[in-house]
Computed example of a mutant assay.
Amino acid sequence: MADLTKQGGIGDFLARQGILIAFVVFMVGFSVANARFIDPDNIMGVVRSSAIMGVMALGVTFVVISGNLDLSVGSMMSFSTIVVLDLHDKIGPALAIPAMFALTLCLGAFIGFLVGYLKLNSLIVTLGMLSAIHGLTLTWSGGKNMDIADKEGTWFKVFGQGDALGIPVPILLFALLAAVLGIMLAKTPFGRKVYAVGGNATAATFSGIRRARVVFTCYLLSAFCVATAGLIQASRSLGSQNTVGQGLELEVLAAVILGGASLMGGSGTIFKTVIGVLILGFIQNGLLLVGLQFYVQFVVTWVIIILAVWLDIAAKRGKLWSLIA
């Protein structure tokens, strides 16, 4: 049986750097299969289209590292998008944007309260909130899709359609958030508390860390990122279906897992989450360029997730495989 416990062993290397190796392999493989894959315009387009999912994944990374899950982010993104589009024509974008952020943060605070302070199971809570927020979105919109009346004259479109120095604004927002949250997670006392709570909540509590407050804050950060993603989505299309975020929660969680964040909590980084997001984006793009149907990406993504989870568990138990659990 393969032993992962030796310092510098292949298993340890795969557990730590496997995501980067996979990223390089996918890029090289798809580049050989179709030269258009490495075209700068194609690469920029993939990163831009991945920015919305990526922004959401940044917040979920904090939640997962703290030892919890958030399956409500897809429905919450639909809610944010619909709310900001609806309020745009009623009170103007200058007020609609902060109002949307405030409402979305309230949803995140409610989830954080249930999971952090009431200590309810995060899977059950967020799965229930997925349906509840979807119902709230349909109620707000009256079951209808939303569109901005004056699509040409609004400055609101800059968040999804604008660019600065030749770089699309969605990519800049994604990069800025990744940098800020990456520093917060890796270099601040709060980041160390997140790792501590996810690694061993009981030990963290006895060390004087307020677990409930840390978990609550993680869900607030996740809600903030979702609101930012909703802003980008609404600005990009200046209109939206009320189910625009449906199913995104699974893609976001897949990206976080691919980035090496353990479902058991206590491990993961923002940088590798970004890599996980890009891997999913380039897989979808690469499969289409080589002529495969879009639904094949779901099977490929499933295989990659299984491999990522397997390596994570193998690293924890010290073996790649074992006949005994």
Rank of each mutant, 00 (worst) to 15 (best):
T5S: 15
T5P: 12
T5A: 15
K6A: 14
Q7P: 05
Q7E: 15
G8R: 08
G9E: 06
G9S: 15
G9P: 07
I10E: 09
I10L: 15
I10R: 14
D12Y: 14
F13M: 13
F13C: 05
L14M: 15
A15Y: 07
A15F: 10
R16N: 13
R16V: 11
G18L: 10
G18W: 07
I19Y: 03
I19K: 00
L20M: 14
L20A: 11
I21L: 15
I21K: 11
I21V: 14
A22K: 02
A22C: 14
V24Q: 11
V25G: 06
F26Y: 12
M27G: 10
M27H: 11
V28I: 15
V28G: 11
G29N: 08
G29E: 10
G29W: 05
G29P: 05
V32S: 12
V32T: 09
V32E: 06
V32F: 15
A33E: 05
A33W: 01
A33P: 03
A33C: 11
N34I: 00
A35D: 02
A35V: 01
R36I: 02
R36K: 14
F37H: 00
I38F: 08
I38P: 00
D39Q: 13
D39E: 14
D39I: 08
D39F: 02
P40H: 11
P40V: 07
P40W: 05
P40N: 13
P40T: 08
D41H: 01
D41I: 12
I43G: 10
I43K: 04
I43P: 02
M44W: 06
M44A: 12
G45K: 03
V46G: 01
V46H: 06
V47N: 01
V47M: 12
R48Y: 01
S49E: 14
S50I: 01
S50T: 13
S50F: 07
A51M: 07
A51F: 08
A51K: 00
I52P: 00
M53L: 15
M53F: 09
M53A: 13
G54I: 07
G54D: 06
G54N: 03
V55C: 08
V55A: 04
M56I: 11
G59E: 06
V60N: 02
T61F: 03
T61V: 08
T61Q: 09
F62Q: 02
V63S: 08
V63N: 03
V63K: 02
V64A: 10
V64S: 08
V64Q: 05
I65Y: 02
I65H: 02
I65S: 07
S66E: 03
G67E: 03
G67L: 05
N68P: 08
N68A: 15
N68S: 15
N68Y: 12
L69C: 10
L69V: 14
S72Q: 08
S72R: 04
V73S: 04
V73Y: 02
V73K: 04
V73A: 05
V73N: 00
G74F: 03
G74S: 07
